[in-house]
Computed example of a mutant assay.
Amino acid sequence: MTTQELEAPSGFSIVVDDVDAGQEPEPELEPEITAPETEEAATTASDNSTGANKEESDARIKQIQGEAESRKNEFAKLLEEHAQVIKELKQMEDDPPSGAVAGPTEA
């Protein structure tokens, strides 16, 4: 393992250890290819796994669409609440408080 020191301007030093030194990278695994016994068996196995994957994908897509619709509705509700708060604030700014004096009075 090697160590490298870096000097910081304010007199501090930072020590960085090389944790990968001396280790060989893991070999990449190549996918194993097996030949099917018959073409018909390969087609049936492929159709079954593709059908299951498609059903899982369709179910996941529907779930995501449902979540998106729910978030969209919640966002619309928050926007409406925000608009209502802004409207009330503007109304409060335009209307003076009930006990306040509008301006100087002459005696």
Rank of each mutant, 00 (worst) to 15 (best):
Q84P: 01
G22E: 05
E74K: 11
G99T: 14
R60P: 03
D17F: 09
V19I: 11
A21D: 14
K54Y: 06
A76N: 10
E81R: 07
A83C: 00
E5G: 02
L79W: 03
L89N: 13
E93C: 14
E30D: 12
E93A: 15
T50S: 09
P36N: 03
S49K: 15
Q84D: 13
L78Y: 07
K90F: 05
S46I: 06
E56R: 15
F12V: 12
D18H: 01
K90G: 15
R60L: 11
A76W: 01
T43W: 13
E39R: 12
M1L: 13
A35C: 05
A42C: 08
P97S: 01
P27R: 00
A102W: 10
G103N: 08
E39K: 05
E37K: 09
E81Q: 15
A21H: 11
P104C: 01
A102V: 08
N73M: 06
E74R: 11
L89W: 01
K54T: 14
N53V: 03
P27A: 00
S70Q: 14
E32S: 08
V101T: 12
A41E: 13
E26Q: 04
A107G: 13
F12A: 14
E56C: 06
V16K: 09
V15A: 05
P36L: 01
A102G: 09
T2F: 09
P31K: 01
A8W: 10
I61K: 10
K77N: 09
E93N: 14
S98F: 11
E80F: 01
I14G: 02
A35I: 13
G103S: 13
D95V: 15
D18Y: 02
E56M: 13
M1G: 14
E26R: 07
E106G: 10
N53E: 10
A107M: 06
G103F: 11
P25L: 01
N48H: 07
E93K: 11
E40F: 09
N53K: 08
T2S: 11
A107E: 15
E40H: 08
A45G: 00
T105F: 04
E93Y: 13
E39A: 12
M92H: 07
E67R: 09
A52C: 02
E30V: 07
S49V: 14
H82S: 15
A41R: 03
Q91L: 09
K62V: 05
S10F: 10
A68Y: 06
V85Y: 05
S98W: 06
S57G: 04
D58N: 11
R71P: 02
Q63Y: 07
G11P: 00
E56Y: 12
E106F: 10
E67I: 04
E67H: 07
S57V: 07
K54L: 12
E26M: 04
P25T: 00
E37D: 12
T50K: 05
E26P: 00
M1N: 05
E5S: 08
K72E: 14
V19E: 11
P27K: 00
E80C: 01
K62R: 15
S70T: 09
Q65S: 08
G103Q: 07
Q91D: 15
V16N: 04
P104H: 03
E37A: 10
G11Y: 02
G11D: 02
E88V: 08
S57W: 12
P31E: 06
D20A: 10
H82M: 09
V19N: 09
E74P: 00
D18G: 02
M92Q: 12
D17M: 10
